[in-house]
Amino acid sequence: MSISNDALRKVLEEIDQKSQFSSQQITIVKAQLSAKAREQRMLQLTASEVGALPPDTHIYEGVGKMFVMTPSDEVVARLGKETKELENDKSNLDKKLHYLETTYKNSKDSFENILKRAGGG
């Protein structure tokens, strides 16, 4: 079974586009993962600083252009919630990255297989 040159070219172009798209998305997801890791580290540092303070210490959080006094237990609870959300986001991004890397690899393998078949026979 032989494939015409036009059909082969269309298939190769489609695979190449899919591969390029996956490669671009991989770069974006890796940047997002890096940003989430930085955010998580900032939350950990903030939580450790707040945790080291005496319980009756006044804590002020920035809200727009003003600061509002917030009880330390509320700050710790908020930081914990944000940390869990970040972990969930990172987990989802890891899954997306795995999918994109698999798609990229499969596209690349398909491209090479088609070229081998076209050249070899």
Rank of each mutant, 00 (worst) to 15 (best):
M1D: 15
S2L: 12
I3R: 07
S4G: 07
A7F: 13
A7W: 10
L8S: 03
R9Y: 14
V11K: 07
L12R: 00
E13S: 13
E14G: 15
I15H: 01
D16A: 14
D16K: 09
S19Q: 13
F21V: 13
S22K: 02
S22N: 08
I28H: 15
V29F: 08
K30R: 10
K30D: 11
A31F: 03
Q32S: 09
L33F: 03
A35T: 03
A35M: 07
K36C: 02
A37S: 05
E39I: 00
R41W: 06
L45N: 09
A47Y: 02
E49D: 13
E49L: 02
H58A: 15
H58V: 10
I59H: 01
G62C: 08
K65C: 07
K65T: 06
M66V: 08
M69E: 14
T70I: 02
P71G: 14
D73G: 11
E74Q: 11
V75K: 01
V75Q: 02
V76D: 03
A77N: 08
A77K: 06
E82S: 05
T83N: 04
K84Y: 10
E85Y: 08
L86M: 03
L86Y: 01
L86C: 03
N88C: 14
S91D: 09
N92I: 03
L93N: 01
K95Y: 09
K96L: 11
Y99R: 07
T102A: 15
T103G: 09
N106E: 11
S107R: 00
K108Y: 12
S110E: 10
F111D: 02
N113R: 10
K116R: 12
R117F: 15
G119W: 03
G121N: 09
G121T: 05
G121S: 11
